[in-house]
Amino acid sequence: MSRIAYVNGAFVPLEEASISILDRGFLFADGIYEVSAVLDGKLVDNEAHLARLQRSVGEIALELPETLARIEEIQKELVARNRLASGMVYMQVTRGAADRDFAFPRGVKPTLVMFTQEKDIVNAPAAKTGIAVKTVPDIRWARRDIKSVALLAQVLAKQAAAEAGCQEAWMIEDGVVTEGGSSSAFILTAGDVLVTRPNSNAILPGCTRKAVMALAEERQIRVEERTFSIDEALAAKEAFITSASSFVQPVVTIDGRPVADGRPGPVATRLREIYIDFARATGR
């Protein structure tokens, strides 16, 4: 059965889904995207993702073509039509199609595209083995808090990681970690403090990051928002990443050097279990 996608008001087979070559998302990366996880056929922490979508489009003066309530209805319809039990719903809104000109066009309706992708997030082998990380310079623009479709720097970072046999890249700026190519970065210090970089224009405000921080604090795990270096990460008890597409995954090596004993640590492992329980209990 062909996957069903959503394009500007219509549900269509994925192979028939198309947009104009004049779409500003294609020509200028003038658009925003968002990804919500699906577990047991239900959307995970979706309210946070829709709120971030609304914030991002607001930061670039882009109107959503549908209400958030309608967007959630479309998400759920896609999950149902594709019989998706585990995976993601991808959403992208652009400024629409118009003759190529840098300034915003007038009277153009934004483009809204959505599709699903199947992935067994819970049983991912990397959750048991841990992942390898490669560090790369952070060459992105100054507004990383906006979830822009302009992802070339992340593509290059993750390609460099893949060529090095790693599963994620950690981007470095001014001697400290900003974030992963498609994830938030955490370490657990020798003093049992979870450390992650504070939200600012320098990083994307991760939805899974926020939920994991709250779940950790509920269990009396101290969380500190500050920057950290690779040397501090290599001296840490544990390191891990969070994202909608991976939940919580331990980091066991950085640039070929082990973190602690080079195996997934108990805190990251437990936080993954707690997050999965949260996802199942709150999915809708």
Score class of each variant (00 low, 15 high):
Arg55Trp: 15
Val93Cys: 10
Ala69Trp: 10
Lys119Tyr: 14
Gln117Leu: 00
Phe26Gln: 12
Lys109Ile: 00
Met88Lys: 00
Asp120Cys: 03
Leu64Ile: 04
Ala97Cys: 15
Met91Asn: 07
Arg52Lys: 13
Asp30Met: 11
Tyr33His: 10
Gly25His: 07
Asp101Ala: 15
Ala97Lys: 14
Leu53Trp: 08
Met91Trp: 02
Gly87Thr: 04
Leu39Glu: 06
Glu72Thr: 08
Arg95Asn: 00
Ala80Asn: 09
Gly96Ala: 08
Leu84Glu: 06
Thr116Asp: 00
Glu118Val: 06
Glu34Asn: 09
Glu118Gly: 13
Asp30Ala: 12
Lys42Arg: 11
Ile21Glu: 10
Thr116Pro: 02
Ser86Asp: 05
Phe26Met: 14
Ala61Trp: 15
Pro65Lys: 14
Val38Glu: 08
Thr67Met: 05
Gly58Phe: 12
Gly107Met: 03
Val108Pro: 06
Val38His: 08
Phe115Cys: 10
Leu84His: 01
Gly31Asn: 06
Val113Met: 03
Val38Met: 04
Leu68Thr: 12
Glu72His: 08
Ala48Trp: 12
Ile32Leu: 03
Arg70Tyr: 05
Phe102Gln: 14
Ala51Ser: 12
Leu62Asp: 06
Phe104Ile: 14
Gln75Cys: 04
Glu66Phe: 15
Thr67His: 04
Ile71Thr: 08
Phe28Val: 12
Val93Thr: 11
Lys128Met: 09
Leu84Thr: 14
Val79His: 04
Ala103Leu: 15
Arg95Asp: 01
Ala85Phe: 04
Asn82Trp: 02
Gly96Trp: 03
Val122Ala: 06
Gly31Ser: 07
Met91Ile: 13
Val89Tyr: 07
Val57Trp: 04
Gly130Asp: 02
Ala69Tyr: 11
Gly58Arg: 08
Lys119Gln: 11
Pro125Leu: 07
Leu27Trp: 06
Ala37Val: 00
Glu73Gly: 14
Leu78Tyr: 00
Thr111His: 12
